[in-house]
Design a protein around this nucleic acid. Sequence first.
DNA 1: TTGTATGCGTTATCAG
DNA 2: CTGATAACGCATACAA
Lengths: 354, 354
Amino acid sequence: MWGRSINTKGNSSVRATQSRKVLPVTIDRVAKHAGVSVSTVSRILNGTAVVAEEKRKAVDEAIAALGFVPNPVARGLAGGKSFSIGVVTQAIDSPFYGAALRGIEDELDPSGYVPMFVSGHWSVNVESRCIDVLRSRRVDGIIVLTGRLSDQTLKTCAKSTPVVVTGRSLKAAGLFSLNFDNFLGARIATQYLLDLGHRAIAFIAGDADHPDANERLRGYRSALEAAGIKFDPALVVAGAYHESSGLMAVEHLLEKRRHFSAIFAANDQMAIGANLALQRRSLRVPADVSLVGFDDLPTSMYAIPPLTSIRQPAYELGRLAASAILQLVNGVQPIAKAPAPQLVARESARRLPG
Amino acid sequence: MWGRSINTKGNSSVRATQSRKVLPVTIDRVAKHAGVSVSTVSRILNGTAVVAEEKRKAVDEAIAALGFVPNPVARGLAGGKSFSIGVVTQAIDSPFYGAALRGIEDELDPSGYVPMFVSGHWSVNVESRCIDVLRSRRVDGIIVLTGRLSDQTLKTCAKSTPVVVTGRSLKAAGLFSLNFDNFLGARIATQYLLDLGHRAIAFIAGDADHPDANERLRGYRSALEAAGIKFDPALVVAGAYHESSGLMAVEHLLEKRRHFSAIFAANDQMAIGANLALQRRSLRVPADVSLVGFDDLPTSMYAIPPLTSIRQPAYELGRLAASAILQLVNGVQPIAKAPAPQLVARESARRLPG
DNA sequence: TTGTATGCGTTATCAG
DNA sequence: CTGATAACGCATACAA
């Protein structure tokens, strides 16, 4: 089935033959050159055991002289490790995940591990398949950036391959979770608007079956309640975390003639969409309506007006996740914690006039 | 050297032992189950030879029954292929490259190949190292998204591993290039502004040692010349392809009291930055100055005002590149061509009043 | 057409 | 501390 989809009929024989001659420096070539056995070379390569200083030197020289580079593929087969970390992201081209991926890459780089990115597209099935692919590739660990896989699936997976997952709080053997405090972030954002004198604050929510979207909704409600303001369901409209849904949300609000002086969007992308919708209707931001986003994407500071948002340090989160998976892979229990949410006040929100 | 950077002292022995029991369904287990030899199974898997229908059925059943999944690592070692394609991108979190990566991913997915992304960060040295890593991983092919590697380096690399590179026009054995027509794109953009009646058109350039940045500059000049307008060096200011440089470019222009009624930015990110700078100085876009970008990033349509830009189909380019490398890997010469640049007129540019 | 034997480059397990 | 040698899981000449 899977095998037939691969086109192998090509006649790449000529090039293939050449390509195998380019880097034929194997470990036993080094061994011979240094006058030792392959095991010795392997040992000093991995630091598996102590070897005589003279032999070590001879081997080091041989390696340098021959330009030997170990073959990760063979190492994988023999040692059961692949020196690669699987990363299931939801959308590799999302501005938010992009930063996280870079963080992962940066952190993994010096360790000799390489990341293997696959996209789950917010679909349980696709994510599942991603995990399968990753495991068939024998990755040494898996980082799951949120997603919709069930907690149980993750736990099961962690039994055979270390897993670190963001966006949830889970505890299990071989599993480490890194949860950003979405609830608190949303609470801070709402509180900020409240402090500015706003009372009618609309909320553009994310997908309902999106765990952190719900947390953000909860934070919004919590701040409202704490301020003694009745939660008005008519002021929250569902979005889908991308620009167009933010735009449509505002149009919906306007169409229904809802009254509001401020909008809190569950992420920056929706805030950007909302911003456009507002200005299309000649509603000035922040003169007529204040706007606050969530995530603080790199580009949000260049929005017009520059967007006030809750900073979610995606890059750092990526680094932390990578660092954690490396620890897990090496048998140590990570203890990292996600940075706390923080408000970045810019120009899209201001004190309610009057 | 490299070996010692890998921490192997951890005591993950227990988990490691388990992990090897999870998917121990090897090819010869299947062979036994089906009552045939391993070679037969292998042949069926790869379509290497014709086998009797009954055996094929037996094997298919065995595969299904045992849930067998071939081990790419072992396949790689034995067959000299890794079923993975290396991709050297410049910045994995760039909005532009993100789309290309998704295209690559989507195209590779059904073929059974998986992409291996590494970032060159616009540095020859880093890119070089990326290539080394990729080759040491025995990727079957490499896609280079522009970058600063010399043509010669690429050609040499292509001798042992098929390469497809974007952003240049190169010909060599095992090498295929996919060049977007940046010159034409820039010409179209400038021409558009010219048609709108603008005469004083500023240009925010990209890095000078960036091949496509130069092409865009050339296109700008070419359109000007064709219209009989003298090229004014004072109207072109260097940028660096990111928002802040666009912002600074405009401030520079304003500071120097240059006169212009329109700006053409060599990419959308700089246009976005320019937009903010303009509005900060109370210059309305497009009422006071028209603005045109390049790339047509997904978010550009949500800018305020929605940005007029030259569409560079990054996603399609990614797909094309992936498709081409697959062909190259299979020994067939690709013939794809990059889509032509196209103007997307939105609201950031308008006819010069008066 | 099908099975056998050998190799792929390392690591790991044993003896020495 | 070191060196043979057997895995690792699969592909593939070579035989049959």
